[in-house]
Structure formats: C-alpha cells, structure tokens
Design a protein around this nucleic acid. Structure first.
Lengths: 134, 134
DNA sequence: AGTATTTATGAGTGCTTTAGTCATAAATAT
DNA sequence: ATATTTATGACTAAAGCACTCATAAATACT
C-alpha cells in the first residue's frame, strides 16, 4: 500500500491552516516553508482542496488560503478521495466488466473487505483528531 | 491502494493448485492456460512461492508444481508478503529516520492503524476460505 | 491606469515502478 | 542423448508519480 505524497502534503497543509487559522488567509509559500513542501507542487494540492470545497482562496497581494470547513469535519477519507488516485485494490471492484478473466472472482470479497476497513478508519479520522493526538 | 498483479496471479495459481491437487504435479503452462496468465511471468511467481515454502516443484518431463502447505494454512497475508512489494503506506512507518520532515509526525498513527487493519484481514483469510466462498 | 503580488492551470519532464519478455542454465524422465 | 520442464537473471515498454515550467487571471496598492 502506498499513500500518494499529495495526500501527505495536503494533510500537513490542512493542519498548518488549522493551527494558523487566526491569522486570516495564509499563503502557499509560508506553508511550503514551514512544512518543507515544494511550493509549486503545494499550490496544486491547495487548488485541488479548494475545488473540492475544503479550503477557500483569495488571489493578489496578501491573498492566500483558509479552511472552508472545521477541522473536525474534514476526514482523512475525504482528503484521500480528493488528492489520492482513487483506484480500487483490484480492478474487479471497479466494474464487473473488468473482472472477466476468471468466471468466478474468488478474490473480490477479500479485497472489498480490505477496502471497506481502510475507508472506515479514514472516514472516522478527522484533521482535528490528528492535531489532538500530538 | 493497489494489489500487484503478481499477488492476483499467485492467489489464482494457488487456488488452481488446490483444486487440482489430486493430479500430482501441475505444470505452469497448464495453470497459465486455465487462468489466462502469461506463462513466463507465472513461472516467476511460482518460483517465488516455491522459495518461500508455499509450493514445491519438480523439473523435467511431467514435472510441475504442487502445494507444500494445506490451503487452510496459506493466508492472503503471507502471499502478499511473498509476492507483493511490501512497502508501508507512508515512509515514516518504515523507520523513524525517514520521518524527519516534520518534527511531530501527525499522520503516523492513522496509517499505522490502516496497515494493521489490512494485515488483520489478510492474515485471517486463507486460500481455503476463498475456495469455499465460491 | 499601472504594477506587484498571489493563486490558477495546463503542459512538460525525469525517475521509479510495474508487468512483462527473452535468453539461457539446470534438472530430470524416457 | 534428447526432450521436457523449472530456475534465474537481464532486459524492455508502458504507466504512474513527483515534480518543474510557463503563463494566465485576479486583486491590492499606489
């Protein structure tokens, strides 16, 4: 299993935004410096979070980003679906037509179970949880 | 999450071996045909399973492969560790030294939880389980 | 109005991984 | 001997990942 670096960066950025929420809009360059994330790449990540309604942004001087949702309502599952490349463990979980190699797909159930277990954990863990743990 | 095709092939091969266990050694080419797996690639997979003690093999005419362990004792977890590329979800779970980007690694716990949940399912699911489900 | 600043966004790039082929060696049955 | 089957390393094509680059669009300030 592999967590895309974008998810890692995204989560760290969201935590950074949450912890600095009093200072109004926060610029990508500041987050990038604090979190040691390539700035341009972070801009893309933040833009995605913006498109999916997790953050808002303002352009221009003193522009920046801020959370659009409370940290307690941002789940890891949602961040994962926003920033990850949401592929299923095996292609037979994507659509039945893709699982035509073996008539009876013996593995479908296990991998589906695995997927659900992962989602259950991620959907019940919020950015706030991560902050409180530390 | 992504399951390497080698794991998929390996599991299908093991099920094939289990279901044809009465016929003695089974050749890779036969499994390849039945399961629609590239023959040479399957040979590599079977060889790995052999090296890790899941199967045995005999070379030469009428040679082939057979299970070295009962299907009820072969777990998906073991197959995954044998054939998968066992990377942790995030590098900070591999060694502490790799988690030096942020002083406090806020994500370590979640991903560790996820990893354990996955392993728990895979380690408690056997090849026999997969066969019986169908 | 003009300029500087900041995000928006698509295109391109280099590296790694994945899935597979190819070639050849080693073992064994006949 | 010879044919058959696994063993094993080297090689390869395609895809995915983690970026960088270039440029557009919005906004604040003078």
């Amino acid at each position: 299993m592999h967590v895309p670096i974008q998810v890692d960066y995204g989560v760290r950025a969201l935590i950074d935004l949450a912890e600095n929420s009093l200072q109004g809009d926060i610029q990508a360059s500041d987050i990038a410096k604090r979190q040691e994330i390539p700035e341009q790449f972070l801009a893309q990540v933040l833009h995605k979070l913006n498109k999916f309604g997790v953050t808002t942004s303002r352009r221009g001087p003193n522009g920046g980003h801020r959370l659009a949702i409370k940290p307690s309502n941002i789940t890891m599952g949602y961040v994962m679906r926003t920033l990850g490349n949401n592929t299923h463990p095996v292609c037979c979980l994507e659509s039945q037509s893709k699982c035509n190699k073996s008539a009876k797909c013996t593995q479908k159930n296990v991998w589906s179970e695995v997927e659900q277990a992962v989602n259950q954990i991620l959907d019940s863990t919020t950015i706030e949880d991560l902050i409180k743990q530390n």
